[in-house]
Simulated scan of single mutants.
Amino acid sequence: MPRAALTRTGTPLDDLAWQAVATRDPSARGRFVIGVVTTAIYCAPGCPARLPGRANIRRFEDWRAAEAAGFRACLRCRPKAEAADLTGAAVVRDAVAAIEAAEAPPTLEALATRAGYSPFHFLRLFKAQTGLTPRAYAEAVRARRLAEAVAEGAGVAEAAFAAGYGSLRGAYAAAGGITPGRARRGGAGETITAAFAESPFGPLLVGATARGVCFLGFAEPREALLADLRRRFPNATIVTDDAALAAHLAAVLAFIDRPRAGLALPLDLQGTAFQKRVWDALRRIPPGETRTYSEVAAALGRPDAVRAVATACARNPVSLAVPCHRVVGKDGGLHGYRWGLPRKRALLEAEAGGGD
């Protein structure tokens, strides 16, 4: 298409959009694309290519509008692929919300129909985004509901059927063999000291019993982190004392700053026997290396327990100290990190040498 025709398409950038393009603001990606009339190429706002003159830029709502106007996608920032990734993430978020809201696990066919995909393509998309199948994710949701209900004092049968299990046998299997009495205690008779600090990842909370660190969380508001600790140990006495855990906080902050050095803390890990085996295996993964869920399962002599390994990683109460960020999907992709994939990526890059 001639340049004169291109200049008549799209809209000129307003001051806010131009500022986002000029500063390569990453938060603008996905909100619009820009077409450069001198090259007939469209880009994402944060494209690393040489910045064109403002007069030569036209704004489009999405890649479809840009291509309809005669522009072609940039090969450096790949705005069309990014849009597809964003769309896929939105589809999976909607499916996850549907699973969380359902009383019984939705079928693959029902979720695929809701998303407008074939079951085959929806399954691939869901696994790429979460590292789990929809069925495995739904089972994890049921197991969590069961554990929370028992910890709050519900009877085992009542909690099992409320969580969607058809039998007590299935409920006990999902709980990994935890006895109802142990789950119901929820930290009763224990005192947990909680301490806060500010980290490069945002607020940091460390919780410790007399035996060692039992909780480590970050990147959320302090109230949310403390609520997470209380949910995990609903019957424990929790006291806040930043000074009492100053050494632990300093060790965690040093690890975040230089994760290749490793993180050694006394730990009080409370979980099933299998979960503890998984967490121990994660601690043996050297900084700078990763393992897939299937590799961890094989190392434990349980190659059929990939789903159980993923569940143990998701329930890891002491992230960083037990480095679940070193576990990746079968395709090498980063999936399912409790504290956000950008932080998982930052940790892995720093451990691989990018933090030196």
Score class of each variant (00 low, 15 high):
E190G: 04
F201N: 05
L225C: 09
A104Q: 14
A90C: 04
R78H: 07
A273F: 03
E158F: 02
L245W: 09
Y172P: 08
A244M: 07
R291L: 10
R58Q: 04
E295C: 09
I99M: 12
R343H: 13
A299T: 08
E198H: 00
P203Y: 02
T7W: 02
A188S: 10
D257K: 10
A136V: 13
A310G: 15
P259S: 10
V318T: 14
R8N: 07
E220G: 01
F215D: 10
R211W: 00
A65E: 14
H121Q: 09
Y117D: 15
R258K: 12
A174E: 13
F215L: 13
M1L: 13
E103R: 15
L245A: 10
T23D: 08
K344V: 00
P200Y: 01
T130E: 06
A194T: 08
G164V: 15
G355N: 02
Q19S: 10
C324V: 08
G355T: 01
A254K: 10
F255C: 10
A90G: 07
A5L: 11
A65F: 02
R326D: 14
G181T: 13
C214S: 15
R302M: 14
R345A: 15
G35W: 07
G35S: 08
H121Y: 06
T209E: 05
L347M: 03
E152F: 00
C43G: 05
Q129I: 06
Y172S: 11
V327P: 14
A49G: 14
C43R: 13
I238C: 13
A110V: 09
A227T: 04
K276S: 11
N56I: 00
D94H: 06
L300T: 05
T133Q: 04
G166T: 11
A69D: 06
A104I: 14
A22F: 02
Q19R: 13
G355H: 00
R258H: 11
G88S: 08
A163N: 09
Q275G: 13
V328S: 04
A281V: 11
G187W: 09
T9D: 12
I192F: 00
R76Y: 03
G176Y: 02
I256M: 15
G207C: 02
L269K: 00
E295A: 13
G288E: 14
A136R: 06
A197K: 04
G166M: 08
G46K: 12
G53F: 01
K276H: 12
V206G: 07
V296W: 01
Y137E: 10
V96D: 02
P286M: 00
P79W: 03
R144A: 10
A183K: 05
